[in-house]
């Protein structure tokens, strides 16, 4: 496998998707603010989208399905970002902080 020919192999894209997922998972565990965790969640969704698009290009019999699924992931991610950010702003208004340790009295 030549290094200039990487874009024609399914494994390349699967490895990219795995790395995006891993980096996002690391950020989700390690970040201390709610906005940082939201950024990491977006990275996880990007990894999933790359996987869908890779299988769509190389394996799927109908190459429109993966593209449409990725478009729906984008729409849901945009809705999720809007809702999560308004929750973050509501939390900030009540607690004057977005640190996850400080708002832990929301636990049951």
């Amino acid at each position: 496998m030549n290094i200039l020919d990487l874009s024609n192999h399914l494994q390349t894209y699967l490895v990219i998707g795995a790395f995006l997922f891993g980096i996002g998972f690391y950020g989700l565990l390690q970040r201390q603010t709610l906005i940082g965790m939201l950024i990491s969640a977006e990275l996880i969704l990007a990894g999933a989208s790359v996987n869908f698009m890779a299988f769509n290009r190389f394996v799927a019999p109908d190459p429109t399905v993966g593209q449409i699924f990725t478009l729906f992931i984008m729409a849901i991610a945009a809705a999720e970002a809007a809702i999560a950010l308004s929750i973050v702003i509501a939390v900030y208004r009540n607690y004057k902080t977005i640190d996850t340790v400080d708002v832990a009295d929301l636990e049951g």
Partner: peptide
Amino acid sequence: LTWGLVALAKGATWSTAAVRMNEG
């Protein structure tokens, strides 16, 4: 987690579709 996923991706073999319905 990443190592496991990469190992899974490199180890598996995927069969390509026999026919493609359109060009996408």
